[in-house]
Design a protein around this nucleic acid. Sequence first.
DNA 1: AATGAAAATGATTGCGCTATCATAATTATG
DNA 2: CATAATTATGATAGCGCAATCATTTTCATT
Lengths: 350, 350
Amino acid sequence: MSESKNKFNKDMPSARRNQASGATLIDVAKVAGVSPITVSRALNRPDQVSEKAREKVRRAVEQVGYIPNMLAGGLASRQSKLVAIFVPTIAHPIFAEMVQALMDELSRAGYQAILGLTGYQKETEETLFNTILGRRPDGIVLTGTQHSELMRRRLIASGIPVVEAWDLCDDPIDMLVGFSHEQVGREVARHLYAKGYRRFAVVTAEDARGMRRYHALLDELHHLGIDDVPTAFIPPPSSLNAGREKVCELLDAGHRPEVVVCSSDTVAQGVLAEAASRGWTVPKDLAVMGFGELSNASQVYPSLSSVRLDGDRVGGQIAQALLERFKNPDAEIAPLRIDTGFTIVDREST
Amino acid sequence: MSESKNKFNKDMPSARRNQASGATLIDVAKVAGVSPITVSRALNRPDQVSEKAREKVRRAVEQVGYIPNMLAGGLASRQSKLVAIFVPTIAHPIFAEMVQALMDELSRAGYQAILGLTGYQKETEETLFNTILGRRPDGIVLTGTQHSELMRRRLIASGIPVVEAWDLCDDPIDMLVGFSHEQVGREVARHLYAKGYRRFAVVTAEDARGMRRYHALLDELHHLGIDDVPTAFIPPPSSLNAGREKVCELLDAGHRPEVVVCSSDTVAQGVLAEAASRGWTVPKDLAVMGFGELSNASQVYPSLSSVRLDGDRVGGQIAQALLERFKNPDAEIAPLRIDTGFTIVDREST
DNA sequence: AATGAAAATGATTGCGCTATCATAATTATG
DNA sequence: CATAATTATGATAGCGCAATCATTTTCATT
């Protein structure tokens, strides 16, 4: 026994509607004394309209407080001016930094971003993905290069420009901006080995890219003759406390590594905290290697050795790649692959 | 039925279009053997459609890989299912946390967020604002309560539900979720005074809310008989290094405060770093008070006293308030004002 | 002036979807 | 069984804008 849904007030629906939705292109056109399409052009392609008309339109827009409806515009033009950005989380500084840079750059070009937080969960990614595709983004930014076959196919079929970020691989969906996690693992191994460390341990988050670095590290250590690398895994999201607990487990299990390689600076700071609480001297009693170069890595005591990535730069490069593609959609799609690199920063903790 | 008006003719525009844009509601309807509007209902109001039809639609959607075009849907229904979130930056953990919680909650209800980064700059806020209003969001989340008169008027006129966050004031635009920055300033003053501190100094960022806390702090100290409070201001964005430099300036100018009150934990950690580098013992030689409770506040050495806010909770409350309003748009608009409070956390640094 | 090219403006149509009203199919009621 | 009440489905008409093509105005050139 539900009450029948009543309709809008018959009184003056149009007035009510206009109050809520604001002025339309047609309202502006009337005030300006030109046709609607001229208003549209004055706003979107000013160079196709005479200075006189442009001025009339500008004044009319001002007067009625017109704000273009981008839902309508997007529908008509098939250009949403929207870029979808998928990241695991923005609570992590490195992603926050990238997103910020990316959005800055995009907004300068009149684009906006819509964020998809995949939360490290494979489960929801596809659902999220569908929802966001519903906004018909002009471009898509993905974190990592490991996606379900279905998603890959759909993305390729859609023809939407895609950038896969934070990683490099051999069969990208489209564009690629990142660095090789394998290379990080290998270089960290060699770097620490060269410094004389022989007994390694690892505390790593169980996310895909972290594991890639981990396996490359193991592999390289193996080549260097080191095979026993006690490891503790942290289920995402990793935190300082998790790092502390996990390294504690390793140590309590009787392992006595010279150096602990961590999947992030956050985890590494947990290890530092545990070392401090045991009264150990870093790096003499235990060396610690981070990853990601949090802004305070150089300020904690002892300052943390880490692998520096540049979120700003990655974001900027992605934006550039997308904007280039938007500007020139018909151009031959040259496979774009940008290696943003990384730097091992040696500080007091190793 | 004869085809009265033909849509696209000639070569293959329809095929091309479908490849790019994907299947439409009509395609699904054809496959399912029902009318388009039934497909729409099966997707958006499943309870109004028979189980049989629902199943046919589900299968057809699956088969053609249909993803609803929310631009079209939004235009027709006047519901964008979009919430605009304005924050100064997401590079700051406290905002990142709020945004994450807010987005989580919203997406659960089928809404998505579009982010506006105001970057602490008054200049661009209005421009940004117009661009984002173009997306016709169903709700708007604002940081702070200080906005231009024009924006206030437009927002109120638009009838869009608005939440102002991170602050409380007496004449909100609409809903309000936050805490009193004045109260923080006063309580921090009293708290430190009660602990015996008499010589205060301040290092604060120059943003609006930080200044409100600062003035309340000064005011309360004045009541307690303390009038000389040397202060250094940091132009946004504040950073650990900026905090360190600024406190250095204060000390080099000959001030010898017992306690430094900082506008953020980041700044406070800069002060800690400077104290450490001078070989001072905290809190004996210099006490430090933070704000915002970064996740590592309790882990730095010495652990940092701070004011704890709960970004998760703020985000959640905002989402609830908005969703409630969406569900019940015609309800009497009860002035909503949620005080999320704060907690002074006393640790080793004071 | 005459002519054509270019620039500026306009009329029409439909983007893909949902609100609205109308109708058909089902169930409840006496 | 007829009738009313209740579903379930469909037809139609826009939402506000830009693509497309048609038309008018302006300007340069002969």
